[in-house]
C-alpha cells in the first residue's frame, strides 16, 4: 500500500475514533465538539481562520530565517574563534536550560503585542538547536579528511580558511540540517506561545479568543489548521534538505527501504 493511501486511512480512523468518543462520552459540544461540528466551523469561519493563520505563518517563517541565520552564524563564530568558544560555550549550555517560554511575557513587554515579540520568541527557541548541532558538526570533521588536506596544503597560505570552506563546512551541513529539522518542529511552538501571552492576531490569539467565548468548535478548527501548517512546514523543509544534501543517509526512515 503506498504512503498517501495509508496516511488518508490513518486520518479517517482517527476521525472515526474521535466521533466515537463524542458519542460514547455524551460530552457537551462546548467541551468536546465532534469532527463534523469542527468541519462546519472551519468552513464557516474559513476567511477568519485563514487571516490569522497567515499571520502565524509569517511569524514562524521569519523566526526560522532569523533563528537559522543567527544560529549558523553563532556556530561558525564559535568554531572559528577558540577564545569565544571557551568563554561563550558554557554560557550557551547553561542558557539552553532556561525555559524559553518563561521569557515570553518579557518579550511581549519589550517588543509589544505585534509581530516582533513572536518572531523574537521563535528565533530564540530555534537558535539553540541550530547552534548546538551545527557547532557539533563543525567540530566533528573526519580527522582523516583534515590530515589529507594538511598534506595537500603544506607550504601554502590560508590553509585554515580553505579547510573550513572546502571540508569542515560542507561536512557539517548534515548536522546543520538535523538542527534545522528540530528548529522547524519547534518554531510553531515559539510563535503560538508568543501569541498566547499577548497579541491581537494569529492562530494562538484566535484559539484563546474562541475559548473565552465558548466557541470550542472554532478553537478546534484553528488548532486543526495550526497542525496542518506545522506538519506541512516540517515535511517541506525535510524534503528540501534531503534534496540539497543528497549524499547524506536519511535521518527519517526511508519509505523506499521498507517496502
Amino acid at each position: 500500500m503506498n504512503t498517501p493511501i495509508r496516511a488518508v486511512l490513518t486520518l479517517l480512523l482517527l476521525l472515526a475514533g474521535w466521533q466515537a468518543v463524542v458519542w460514547l462520552s455524551q460530552a457537551a459540544p462546548y467541551i468536546l465538539p465532534g469532527p463534523l461540528l469542527v468541519a462546519k466551523s472551519l468552513v464557516g469561519h474559513f476567511g477568519l481562520i485563514l487571516r490569522h493563520a497567515g499571520i502565524t505563518v509569517v511569524e514562524i517563517l521569519l523566526g526560522l530565517v532569523f533563528g537559522t541565520l543567527l544560529g549558523a552564524g553563532g556556530a561558525l563564530a564559535l568554531s572559528w574563534f577558540p577564545a569565544a568558544r571557551r568563554w561563550l560555550l558554557p554560557l550557551l549550555v547553561v542558557a539552553q536550560a532556561i525555559p524559553v517560554f518563561a521569557l515570553a511575557p518579557i518579550l511581549v513587554l519589550w517588543l509589544g503585542y505585534g509581530l516582533g515579540s513572536k518572531v523574537a520568541m521563535a528565533t530564540l527557541i530555534i537558535f539553540f538547536p541550530v547552534t548546538a548541532s551545527f557547532l557539533d558538526g563543525l567540530r566533528r570533521t573526519e580527522p582523516g579528511w583534515l590530515d589529507l588536506a594538511r598534506t595537500m596544503t603544506a607550504g601554502h597560505g590560508a590553509a585554515h580558511w580553505a579547510e573550513l570552506r572546502h571540508i569542515r563546512l560542507p561536512a557539517a551541513l548534515p548536522a546543520l540540517a538535523s538542527g534545522l529539522r528540530v528548529a522547524t518542529a519547534v518554531a510553531p511552538i515559539g510563535a503560538v506561545v508568543g501569541e498566547w501571552v499577548g497579541s491581537s492576531a494569529g492562530l494562538g490569539y484566535l484559539m484563546l479568543h474562541a475559548n473565552g467565548r465558548m466557541q470550542i468548535d472554532l478553537m478546534f478548527a484553528a488548532l486543526f489548521v495550526l497542525a496542518i501548517i506545522a506538519v506541512a512546514l516540517f515535511f517541506t523543509v525535510d524534503r528540501l534538505l534531503r534534496r540539497l544534501l543528497p549524499w547524506q543517509p536519511d535521518s527519517l526512515p526511508n519509505e523506499e527501504g521498507d517496502r
Binding site: G144, W145, D147, P170, A171, W247, Q248
Partner: peptide
C-alpha cells in the same frame, strides 16, 4: 612535496 594516500579512500561524499 609528498602526496599521501590512506588505507581509507577519504573521498569527500558531497
Amino acid at each position: 612535496r609528498a602526496a599521501y594516500m590512506d588505507q581509507r579512500d577519504l573521498l569527500l561524499p558531497w
